[in-house]
Design a binder for these strands. Structure first.
Length: 572
RNA sequence: GCCCCGGUAGCUCAACUGGAUAGAGCGUCUGCCUUCUAAGCAGAAUGUUGUGGGUUCAAGUCCCGCCCGGGGUACCA
């Protein structure tokens, strides 16, 4: 909160001295080392150098122009020309008082809300969701929530794979090998079995492959029976997707699958040809990127030699639809990093097709999922870990833990806690790492109950709730001021103020792990506070103020966790 | 071949416009439960940030070379 005011004042001061300089890079950031102060500005050094000024002298001149006495101790210059700001306790207190009154929760919503389309999850019809889908789903939904928390308009769209060549094989399987009992038991497993069965048969027998192709052509031509089966497969799949999404608490505004764009594909290709963007090559319609360094040798096919479109075409039509329907300032795709080339091509191609679209096209990719042996975790290996089973095991492990720690709680309540903790642990494990790092799938990492994990954060929250339970009917009085006399109180309070900064950082880089780190630090600082600063046993203003600090910490934890898609619990 | 990623403590990871002494957790070791939930807190040990140069007042971060690993690379998505 305060840092934004500081930053504005600093930028004005710099502008007064260097009217021509771009002051947008003059930023105020939290100090890495608390001993230097609370906030620092590093940009003056470079700015001074670029203007042939002595950095320290320039810094001194800036300070003369800068009046921040209302919120800071005298500003100091350190090293080659860093500015260090130390907050006055009164200023800190004022922000906390405002938060305690409910005026804000240490962040501001966007002055100019943007519209952002976020594309995530995108499972395939007739295939069970597996561990590979969880990152996209969790990352995407969390990003949507952070953007929304900051006041932006978000459209979430599940671009499910409900069209494509796999349906030829699935139709053969459905017509010739369907086990209806199995379908009733577990539709996705049965459909997957059918696919594998026919896929294997195709490899062995050319006739089966031809049969599958014929079924696909019939589907594409609108054959009533095949269309009905196709719709049935989609319905069964969506039913099971919804079950998973329900457990994960994930929602979508739209579910426009690939088939939604079928009618537009031919037109897209025609336009690309007419505009001279696509050209015929080996029977296919291809787009070359000769002027582009990394795409020079990687043309994109927009129409296969058999006349069918492929996913580049579908994605172009999808993007066109999104632009027309929502006029977003940004479209975010949350997928595996292996699709980087595809999205590079897509963005480049779309911009060539619609040069004035003006949208930020953002591929938010994440690392490959590896097995514990460090080998890529491939879908086709047959060693698929079903998402539903993963969630079951997470809840079971959490149930065992809560039953051990708190055996006296009623079983029903332990199940509820296990759901919150178990599913929270999985989500948090996914969100707390740098998304671009390869992801080593490990039960122990996912379901760990100690360290930088969901249970640690949830536990900090339950301690706060426990205090307020003990408070009983006593109403919470709002402090008129915060003394923050003890070191742990002061540190905790300062950390609360950084919440908004972190949220901004998350949407700037689409990296929820910043929020995880922040909350983990907050929980740690609260832990120290909790051990060293008695709350209920304190008296008078100290008690009031500490209770308010607990309440605010609880609110930030709760809001932060909710934004990460985690529920909280009062006991665990 | 070409393109894109990555290489940080024994392990898993973090490090916010390049910024001050590279931080956590796990594991190891030591203290703290008649006192607000010990799923906790306090403390100890752990590094040539793959490697060699360069730019800079300042490099894990930017540039170039090399080594190692992963991924992608014309009709799957």
């Amino acid at each position: 909160m305060i840092h934004l005011a500081l930053q504005e004042k600093l930028q004005r001061a710099v502008h007064a001295l260097l009217p021509d300089a771009d002051v947008s890079s003059v930023l105020v950031r939290p100090c890495a080392e608390p001993k230097f102060g609370d906030y620092q500005a590093n940009a003056l050094i470079g700015l001074a150098k670029r203007n042939q000024l002595n950095p320290r002298e320039f810094a001194a001149q800036v300070i003369e122009q800068l009046d921040v006495a209302d919120c800071c101790e005298p500003v100091t210059i350190a090293g080659p020309g860093f500015l260090n700001f130390r907050l006055k306790t009164e200023a800190l207190s004022e922000v906390l008082v405002g938060a305690a009154k409910g005026e804000h929760l240490f962040y501001r919503t966007a002055a100019e809300p943007r519209t952002i389309v976020i594309d995530y999850s995108s499972p395939n019809v007739a295939k069970p969701m597996h561990v590979g889908h969880i990152r996209s789903t969790i990352l995407g939904y969390t990003l949507a929530k952070v953007f929304r928390l900051l006041g932006h308009n978000v459209v979430t769209d599940n671009h499910i794979g409900d069209w494509g060549t796999q349906f030829g094989k699935l139709l053969v399987g459905w017509k010739e090998h369907l086990n209806k009992d199995a379908l009733g038991q577990d539709a996705l497993a049965e459909m997957e079995r059918l696919y594998k069965l026919v896929n294997t048969a195709c490899d062995a027998d050319e006739a089966v492959l031809t049969h599958a192709r014929n079924e696909l052509v019939k589907l594409q031509d609108g054959d009533a029976e095949n269309l009905a089966i196709w719709r049935e497969m989609i319905n069964l799949s969506r039913h099971q997707f919804d079950e998973i999404y329900g457990r994960l608490g994930v929602k979508f505004d739209e579910t426009l699958g690939e088939s939604f764009y079928n009618d537009r594909l031919k037109g897209v290709v025609d336009e690309l040809i007419t505009q001279g963007i696509a050209e015929e090559s080996d029977g296919a319609q291809v787009v070359f990127f000769n002027d582009h360094k990394s795409l020079k040798k990687h043309p994109a096919i927009v129409q296969k030699s058999d006349g069918a479109a492929n996913y580049t075409t579908t994605d172009l039509a999808t993007l066109e639809h999104r632009q027309n329907r929502w006029q977003p300032s940004e479209v975010i795709y949350v997928t595996d990093g292996r699709q980087q080339l595809h999205f590079q091509q897509l963005f480049e191609l779309y911009t060539r097709w619609k040069p004035s679209h003006g949208m930020k096209l953002n591929h938010v990719w994440f690392g490959t999922i590896l097995g514990e042996d460090g080998r890529p975790f491939k879908t086709r290996s047959g060693e698929i870990i079903r998402l539903s089973g993963l969630l079951d095991e997470a809840e079971q492990r959490a149930f065992d833990a809560v039953s051990e720690k708190n055996p006296d709680l009623p079983e029903e309540q332990r199940h509820t806690i296990a759901r919150v903790v178990g599913l929270g642990a999985i989500k948090y494990a996914d969100l707390s790492g740098n998304r671009q790092s390869d992801y080593v799938f490990s039960w122990d990492t996912m379901l760990a109950l100690v360290g930088n994990t969901a249970p640690y954060l949830l536990y900090a929250y339950t301690r706060i709730r426990s205090l307020f339970r003990k408070l009983g009917d006593e109403s919470l009085t709002r402090p008129a001021t915060f003394a923050l006399g003890q070191a742990e109180e002061l540190t905790l309070a300062k950390h609360l103020l950084r919440f908004g900064l972190v949220l901004e950082l998350v949407i700037d880089e689409c990296r929820p792990n910043y929020l995880c780190n922040y909350l983990y630090e907050l929980a740690g600082l609260f832990g120290s506070f909790y051990e060293n600063c008695p709350v209920l046993q304190a008296e008078g203003d100290t008690r009031t103020q500490r209770l308010a600090l607990c309440d605010l910490t609880g609110q930030v934890l709760n809001t932060g966790l909710e934004t990460l898609g985690l529920e909280t619990t009062d006991r665990m």
